[in-house]
Structure formats: C-alpha cells, structure tokens
Simulated scan of single mutants.
Amino acid sequence: ISYLDVEQSDAEETRRWVEKAGRRALLLPGDLRSEAHCREIVSRTVAELGGLDILVNNAAAQTVNDGLDDVTSEDLEGAFRANVFAMYYLAQAAVPHMKPGSAIVNSTSQQAKIADKTMLIYAATKGAIASLTIGLSNLLAPRGIRVNCVAPGPIWTPIQPIVKSPEQLETLGSDTALGRAGQPAELAPAYVLLASREGSYMSGALVPVTGGTPML
C-alpha cells in the first residue's frame, strides 16, 4: 500500500465522520509543494463552504538520512517546499478571507529542538515552522488572527510504517518519559484548543505533545 493510498483512505474516513456529524467535508487532494495548488484549495474552500475561519497546516514530508551525503538537493528543496513553503502560501491565500477571531494552527515537531542525527532536514524544516509561527503571530495579531503551533513527539500516524523499519517501530516512543508513542486522539485536543475560543488568549505559542520530552 502506497502512502498516497493511505492518505486517500484516511481522507475518505474523515469525510464520513464529518458527514455523520451533519457537516460538509470537501476533499481537495494535490501536491502542496505547488504554490498554485495551495492557492486553489483556499479559493475552492471559500467558494464551496462560504468562508474560512481556521487554517490547520498539517501536511509534511519526512526526510531521513544516515549520513550527510544521503540527502540530495531535490530532497532538500522538496522537504522545504512541502513543510515550509506550503504553509506560507496557504497563509497568504487564507488570511484575506479571515476575520478577527480566526486562527491558524501549524504543525511543527519535537525535532525542531532535539534534531535527531537521522532527521537533519526534517528537523530544520520544523525549526523553520516554529519561527514562522512566531513571526506570523506578531504580524497578524493586529488583525485579530491568532497563530500557534503544536509540536508532536512520536505519534502512531500512517507515516510511521512508511519511513521506519519494523525494528524502529517496535521501540517507537520508548525513549520518552512516558515510555510509549502517542495516539492521534491524544494529539487532537491541542489543535482543538488552539483553534477554538477557549484558546482566545493564546498566540505565538508552541504546545508540546511529546510524551514528556521537554521543549523548554
């Protein structure tokens, strides 16, 4: 099963849950490394759903390496396009449609701080996202738009079996203070808080959900 098949299956399941709750879901598959696609999905969302109040940036490419020569220039550019450029393009397209009280929530990672030796480029992109979040928060605060980010640790997401070996999966999260990997359901409340009115006095914040790995 390819990563794209997993993503499509997850998207379809998400749509079923949204529609079961009596809401509409709009699936817009495509390559977020493309500036044109980023702008298109915002415009289509506004056209189909009538507005845009919350932008959650959660797509990412995880580049791994053993040595310094394992990452090609194409890998490097692709990682930054998927993880950092896309967030900027989406914010550019979304903000003109947002009103005071709207929120942007970005996904960074504990790798922004710990920078594992096998994730040089991934960690660099996640560090850039953390800084981008602070900058956007400062820029958009006068417009009443809050910008925050969530920093997950090891979470059981579909990308794990794609980028990790069976041996690595067996010990995923065992080096955290809580001794295990997290479940997506344990990550979701942080996003809900930052996107909702309950987080109305939070902007420029990084919320770690890392199983106890410190990010101070």
Score class of each variant (00 low, 15 high):
Trp156Ala: 13
Ala177Glu: 13
Gly78Phe: 08
Leu132Lys: 01
Lys99Met: 14
Glu19Ile: 04
Ala112Phe: 03
Ser203Trp: 02
Pro152Ala: 11
Thr210Ser: 05
Asp10His: 12
Gly211Pro: 03
Leu52Cys: 10
Thr213Ala: 03
Glu7Ile: 11
Ser131Asp: 04
Leu172Trp: 06
Asp175Trp: 10
Leu120Ser: 12
Leu194Arg: 06
Val147Asn: 03
Tyr89Glu: 03
Gln92Tyr: 03
Gly78Met: 09
Gly67Ala: 07
Met202Thr: 09
Leu28Asp: 00
Ser137Trp: 02
Ala25Lys: 01
Ala130Ile: 01
Val209Lys: 02
Ala21Thr: 01
Ile54Ala: 08
Ala61Gly: 11
Thr125Leu: 04
Leu140Ala: 03
Ala205Val: 14
Ser9Glu: 13
Ile121Asn: 04
Leu55Tyr: 10
Asn106Phe: 09
Ile121Met: 08
Gly153Tyr: 10
Lys99Leu: 14
Tyr191Cys: 08
Thr133Phe: 01
Leu172Asn: 01
Val42Trp: 02
Pro189Ala: 12
Arg39Gln: 05
Ala47Gln: 15
Tyr122Leu: 06
Ala86His: 02
Thr213Lys: 04
Ala185Asp: 14
Gly153Gln: 12
Glu74Asp: 15
Thr171Glu: 15
Val209Gln: 05
Ala36Gly: 01
Ala205Cys: 14
Trp17Gln: 14
Pro208Ile: 03
Gln168Met: 11
Gly22Tyr: 01
Ile159Val: 15
Leu169Met: 15
Leu55Ser: 05
Trp156Gly: 08
Glu186Val: 07
Asp69Cys: 10
Lys113Val: 15
Ala205Gln: 13
Tyr89Val: 02
Thr157His: 10
Ile145Gln: 06
Thr125Phe: 02
Asp10Tyr: 10
Asp75Thr: 09
Ala103Phe: 07
Ala82Gly: 06
Val56Gln: 03
Glu198Leu: 15
Asn106Ala: 09
Val6Lys: 07
Leu120Pro: 02
Glu12Val: 10
Leu136Gly: 00
Ala185Ser: 14
Ile1Val: 11
Asn148Gly: 13
Leu194Ser: 07
Ala205Asn: 05
Pro184Glu: 09
Ser9Val: 07
Ala195Gly: 06
Val192Phe: 13
Gln111Asn: 15
Ile104Arg: 02
Ala94Tyr: 00
Arg44Thr: 06
Val64Ile: 13
Pro158Asp: 07
Ile145Trp: 03
Ser137Arg: 02
Ser137Ala: 15
Ala112Glu: 04
Thr72Asp: 09
Leu140Gln: 03
Ser107Cys: 13
Met202Phe: 14
